[in-house]
Write a protein that binds this DNA or RNA. Structure first.
Lengths: 163, 163
DNA sequence: TATTGTTATACTCTATAACTATA
DNA sequence: TATAGTTATAGAGTATAACAATA
């Protein structure tokens, strides 16, 4: 959003273009999914929990979420009756996320919403631009912009013991 | 980051592609600017305050920041000796942001850093893809993805009066 | 009455650390 | 000892409301 480039910049403002389009698309996606009571994270967990026996840790990995964020997301899915925690049959520490019948139905609808939002954006472009845009973004994602650079983390104090 | 599309999605996952590339580029930009002690916001304010007599409100508009965020940003620039608040000659409520000599020098360096980070990303693409990527992102920015959709804001209680 | 900039603070988001149960 | 999941909470980021000065 923050414009990095003043009028005399030598390079196009790729930061602004990616941030802006990403932000607006995210807002559209959030609004569209909110109509059926989902967040983007809930959708992500739901669709990846269908058909496969996946633990919270595995789903967190797929959605690039922290395990504590996953707890909150699964709480929300359980509360909405869309998924359930079940003990893993192979590891008594782990919980498998089982999608309910209602959850499977919602997942089907939410995937259609996601596809629609993406299609609407992509169809606003001429076909040749659309194809090259996707190819370029995939190339960046696998290449030069594959991994974030690590910033030095601020030191974090231990939390107070509660016992 | 959150993958919106499972393997059976009908549309390419534009959300993921824009979020991921935007996030990684932002992390690179932040790391590069941190080497000369700037944040992206400080850079943005600095380069747009040069040459023009602009108030905080005008600079906030340009960078799409809240006016309270602008206060923090200008505080940081003043503390670093890169800019100063001066009373506006035409409106005694307003403060004009004047860039110091040191600030102008830093702004020149930071713009070179910004251009370099953008150039490195863009040059990782074949020229034809690069041109079309920029054209497509600009088309989306001016067209289908011009404005975020408004989400219903959560209600906010009044803060306690301090007097 | 409306606006500029400031302060105080509420709220969200995310992640760290501690913890329990189990491997 | 290490890992899955949970809880509590720290900290960053951001935005709202109230406020003083001025338009």
């Amino acid at each position: 959003m923050t414009a990095m480039a003043p009028p005399h910049a030598e390079q196009p403002d790729l930061s602004f273009l990616l941030d802006h389009t990403g932000h607006v698309l995210r807002s559209r996606m959030a609004a569209a999914l909110a109509e059926i009571g989902l967040t983007a994270r809930m959708h992500c967990v739901l669709v990846h929990a269908i058909g496969e026996e996946r633990t919270q840790a595995q789903l967190a990995e797929i959605g690039d979420m922290d395990k504590t964020t996953m707890v909150v997301t699964v709480d929300a899915l359980e509360k909405a009756g869309l998924a359930e925690r079940r003990p893993s049959s192979t590891d008594r520490r782990a919980r498998v996320i089982a999608v309910t019948d209602a959850g499977a139905e919602v997942a089907h609808r939410s995937q259609r919403i996601v596809d629609r939002v993406h299609r609407e954006a992509l169809e606003s472009l001429p076909e040749d631009e659309r194809v090259v845009l996707l190819r370029a973004l995939e190339r960046l994602t696998k290449g030069h912009l594959a991994e974030p650079v690590e910033q030095p983390q601020p030191v974090r104090r231990a939390r107070q013991r509660t016992v």
